[in-house]
Design a protein around this nucleic acid. Structure first.
Length: 424
RNA sequence: GGAGAGGUUCCCGAGUGGCCAAAGGGAGCAGACUGUAAAUCUGUUGGCGAAGCCUUCGGAGGUUCGAACCCUCCCCUCUCCA
């Protein structure tokens, strides 16, 4: 079997490793590794996809991945790289979030075999302060912590004691997992480097075991935006927060320069196939983006949803030929096919349509625009379309005469679409 | 606990009695150009069927015809001192 270290390395997952040679050697044998996720919301977002994929690669290569949900550390808040203190969550909120995260992660990891999902609240909540200080605290040098990169930013704007402890708690997590689950590797974003290394150090001092750190690059898109952020907010993995169609569109809109990178990181397509994408030129790149979007959507929301999103996008933006030789491992259908319905849809009572609804009201109601004022602006700027026709006045009445077999198709700008269907 | 500096719209940041729904920049959105890309240029960016009205400058009161701006108390952040 392939060494997962090479897999991660070749696919661009690695920013830093504590001891590359030794780790690679160690990974010849099955090992246990972990990544921490903060339960700050009831859904993960695209930013978490990278660590999730890393764990999935681990499992595929025969290792045991542990997802550590920070039910305990979430009550403290990680100051790394943040300029402000984070909101501290209540215990029941965190508990609900943990349950939701488990559901999402199970799309990527098989918890029925060897993967584990643990919550550090299990051991952190019962810590006794004095014991903790004596057993763990004594191994930490405040001088060194203050010098750590992850606290730099906060030292300028202010760092309070609760957050300062975050590093100790995370180090303690690693130590617990090391002794109880024989976990030898912690992975995380590159901003976690300091915290992870602190754990390695603690493990060594407490018992001389070996442990390793591996961090992922902190991705920004080629245009500099943070991964997974759009105007509408974060792109979530939860279908109720970000619909599969919008999720698919997020990936379609990938910057040309990011396509290869994303195919490597966010799909399981073989590297030699991805290699050809680099030579695509101009519009040909769109075929690769289509496959990228399809594959990521499939992993996150399942084949059915991915297909639906793909078909919906094809029907709205036009079908594009997908060369048979491109990324052949992808199961994306390359033949023309009947349309599926995945365009975000609103149901509307017949009576309202009979009366007619002013265009700006309609656009605001479907969520295509944030407010009626925004809708008004959209129309004024010529960005509002009904059934592919530009709306000329903001209060033009939209009624039954616009109904087609597919309902009424609204577009805000060229990319955001919404369908109105008559019904309850 | 003491001294000082601050808290303005999505973010940064100007504004210190009316000309302020609040400069400038960033980010976003739309248009043109394109390939559902990038870059560029233009427009736009609190709410309301848009006239005008309503809500917004940390919070609560007050002064005034009128307060983001002046006064009082409170909350929070930062710097220095203890």
């Amino acid at each position: 079997m392939e060494n997962v270290f090479d897999v991660l390395n070749e696919r661009g997952f690695i920013a830093q490793v504590s001891d590359a040679e030794a780790l690679k050697e160690r990974l010849r044998e099955p090992a246990t590794c972990y990544i921490g996720f903060d339960p700050t919301a009831d859904s993960l977002h695209v930013g978490s996809l990278l660590p999730i994929m890393a764990l999935a690669h681990m499992q595929r290569c025969g290792h045991r991945p542990i997802v550590l949900v920070g039910g305990g550390t979430g009550m403290v808040g990680d100051p790394s790289g943040k300029t402000e203190m984070r909101q501290i969550l209540g215990a029941d909120q965190i508990e609900a979030n943990v349950a939701a995260l488990r559901g999402q992660l199970s799309h990527f990891l098989d918890f029925s075999s060897r993967a584990l999902l643990l919550n550090n609240a299990e051991w952190l909540l019962e810590l006794r302060y004095i014991d903790f200080l004596r057993d763990i605290g004594k191994h930490f040098s405040v001088n060194r912590m203050l010098a750590a990169e992850c606290y730099k930013m906060r030292l300028e704007s202010g760092l309070n004691f609760i957050e300062f402890n975050y590093m100790l708690l995370q180090a303690y997590d690693f130590y617990r997992l090391s002794t109880e689950y024989d976990c030898i590797l912690q992975m995380g974003g590159n901003d976690q480097w300091g915290n992870i290394v602190a754990g390695i150090e603690l493990i060594r001092r407490k018992g001389g075991r070996n442990a390793y750190a591996l961090t992922f690059p902190l991705l920004t898109t080629a245009s500099g935006a943070k991964m997974g952020k759009t105007a509408a907010g974060a792109v979530w993995l939860s279908a109720t927060r970000t619909g599969p169609f919008d999720f698919y569109q997020y990936w379609i809109n990938t910057d040309d320069r990011d396509v290869v990178k994303f195919l490597k990181l966010y799909t399981f397509l073989p590297l030699d196939e991805i290699g050809q994408v680099a030579s695509l030129e101009g519009q040909e790149m769109n075929a690769a983006k289509t496959i990228l979007a399809y594959e990521v959507t499939r992993l996150t929301h399942g084949t059915e949803q991915a297909l639906a999103a793909y078909e919906a996008a094809s029907s709205v933006f036009g079908r594009r030929d997908l060369p048979r030789t491109l990324l052949t491992s992808s199961q994306i259908p390359r033949e023309a096919k009947e349309e599926a319905e995945a365009v975000p849809t609103t149901h509307m009572e017949r009576a309202r349509l009979d009366e007619g609804i002013p265009a700006f009201v309609l656009f605001a109601e479907t969520g295509l625009c944030e407010s009626r004022g925004a809708a008004r602006r959209l129309v004024q700027q010529g960005g509002a379309y009904v059934n592919e026709e530009r709306v000329k006045t903001f209060d033009a009445l939209i009624g039954v005469e616009y109904l087609t077999g597919e309902g009424i198709l609204l577009k805000a700008g060229k990319k955001k679409i919404h369908r109105i269907v008559v019904g309850p």
